[in-house]
Design a protein around this nucleic acid. Structure first.
Lengths: 337, 337
DNA sequence: TCACCAGCCTAAACCGGTTTAGAGGAAACT
DNA sequence: AGTTTCCTCTAAACCGGTTTAGGCTGGTGA
């Protein structure tokens, strides 16, 4: 049996297809009873609008895009995305939109991906994550005429931003450690060219300065467990190793704990460790990991909401989300005297 | 400046739009030189076909769908999906298709998601993962007329299956442990209603039987780290605790190691542990985790390839991928005498 | 009484492709 | 020479919606 079209509805309701279209789109100029009759017929015969026909005439695709340029291994270890996507989805599906996902391997492929999404009008807008320093994407996207919402604020971008202050989690972590008596705290940072990497690092330095201790023991990595392990080795090899390490994400913290264990250190007494993201597994490693909580699903909802506003109204305000808090577990303790 | 249409190309190349369409679709009946001229003009003026117009007339969407019904927390911990999706993407983007992703919270929402994808003709086919016992989806999908490829073979399904024998990884793990001298091996399984959970469990039992030891120490979980930890507690509480535990995935293995550590056990001497998936972090925990390797990206490529074949040719053969191998690290050793 | 307007509705154009039916010319066959 | 066939090409219909322009009716104000 053929899928019913707008003409089937029109015929059955004894009106023109124009009127059916008006009724379905809640436009004025349809009498109340006619509208009800049309909607009744539509649902009775199981009619649903063809997205492609609609797309063709409205020049919209009723989809939004998410392009990610990252090593799958690193994404895999990142608890952020699945929850983030779930949040995005929740908002989109409510409004009949759909999420188009693209994983690419390189920054060039990323730009190419945006270009084809735009050229094919596959999406009405995109969500931009993993903001970089001097990120070319906001400019590219305005160039392409693709509405965009960025996760985090980026200089010179006109796109609305959805921001969660992850600074706060790092600040709390340092304060927590200082309060426990640590004076020698190191930071294993993400790459500086990523905005959230740089931001967390800056927060670390600032928090150290505020506490009157040195904040210059920072090792930069790429957020991967492997590099986190290497960084930890390096720090522990110092003549005076730190008594605490603040890691910029959980996988690195867990890998760092692995290194410490393998050197025979006792955690948390010989070394305190904090993570970032509060992933599911953080509570279950030994010792249970103190970590800064983020709310990826809420980010997703906020970002999707802002993007839909932008698409429909041409503008949307920035959104500031409540800062992540620190979840204190067993991986932090006062240093040995 | 307006986006060029097929008419612009036709005008510029001094042919009809029919011929442009033929040329772009590699259909016969276009002289060689005319075809070249058309393609040259198209690329010169930056023409690309409108997906929505094409969709409308061909009744295809040039997209494939992936619907997942899982707790985002559990997905987050699962290293499988990002790599899998990256593999899928690689194949799709090559052929100009796009991936539509949907995360839902419940099984009912999952069915609803498939229904709207089908009703809206959002996708030309779907990838079905996390197969369950008596899975209703193959039937639902043939009902909806949505081509589907399943990850794993399911009874009574007509959909092509892409299969990787994860049985092998478990079998190797048990053999490896037995060879080291273990006689008392337990298994922390995924949920039995998930086919891969059940399959790994059956493989465990079979491997134990083959080695002449008991395979009845199995605790079922939901694949989450938390439940993995609980299961480990339970096993270690026994009057005669196992000397080795085979976990059905890495997060549970890591959580299990956390429990063992917190009880003061020394790994691997007091307890050997194996994981499954060989996630990025497995190599960096302490002790480094012995784990069965899977090839999610290869699954993704194979599944996407099969689905495209199915969509275009109406049929596709099942694909059998090479079995996962065991990566032996430091978390397994002979039991204490 | 007539002009005007508001409310409800429809015909037809339009979005940008694909596909069908068939035209025209040259080569090949009878 | 006449017919057939092949090759290249085109006009027009079609996919299923949205949107524009305007028609008809009945009520209101001058």
């Amino acid at each position: 049996m053929r899928k019913p079209t707008i003409l089937d509805v029109a015929r059955e309701a004894r009106v023109s297809k124009t009127l059916v279209s008006f009724a379905l789109n809640d436009r004025p100029g349809v009498s109340h009873e006619t509208r009800d009759r049309i909607l009744e017929v539509a649902s009775r015969i199981g009619y649903s609008r063809s997205v492609s026909a609609r797309s063709l005439s409205t020049n919209r695709s009723y989809a939004v895009g998410l392009v990610m340029a990252r090593d799958p291994q690193v994404i895999a270890a990142d608890p952020f995305f699945p929850s983030f996507i779930a949040g995005v989805e929740r908002v989109l599906s409510e409004r009949g939109l759909v999420l188009v996902l693209s994983f690419v391997e390189s920054v060039e492929a990323e730009a190419a991906s945006y270009r084809t999404l735009a050229a094919d009008r596959r999406v009405d807008g995109v969500l931009v994550t993993d903001l970089r320093e001097d990120d070319p994407r906001p400019a590219l996207l305005t160039d392409l005429g693709l509405p965009a919402v960025t996760l985090g604020r980026v200089a010179g971008s006109v796109a609305p931003a959805v921001v969660m202050d992850d600074t706060d989690g790092i600040t709390q972590a340092v304060a927590h450690l200082v309060e426990a008596g640590h004076r020698d705290i190191a930071h294993v940072a993400g790459p500086t060219h990523l905005l959230h990497g740089a931001r967390r690092r800056a927060a670390f330095v600032a928090a150290c300065k505020a506490a009157g201790i040195s904040g210059d023991r920072v090792v930069e990595t790429d957020f991967s467990a492997g590099r986190g392990a290497e960084a930890t080795e390096h720090l522990l090899d110092a003549s005076v190793p730190p008594t605490a390490i603040v890691f910029a994400n959980d996988p690195m913290a867990i890998a760092g704990m692995g290194i410490a264990h393998s050197r025979g250190l006792r955690l948390p007494d010989d070394l305190s460790v904090t993570g970032f993201d509060d992933s599911d597994i953080a509570a279950h490693v030994f010792p249970a990991l103190t970590s800064a909580r983020t709310r990826p699903a809420r980010w997703g909802e906020a970002a999707a909401g802002a993007l839909l506003d932008l698409i429909e109204n041409g503008s949307a305000p920035d959104v500031d989300l409540e800062p992540a808090g620190l979840v204190v577990r067993k991986s932090t303790a006062p240093p040995r005297p």
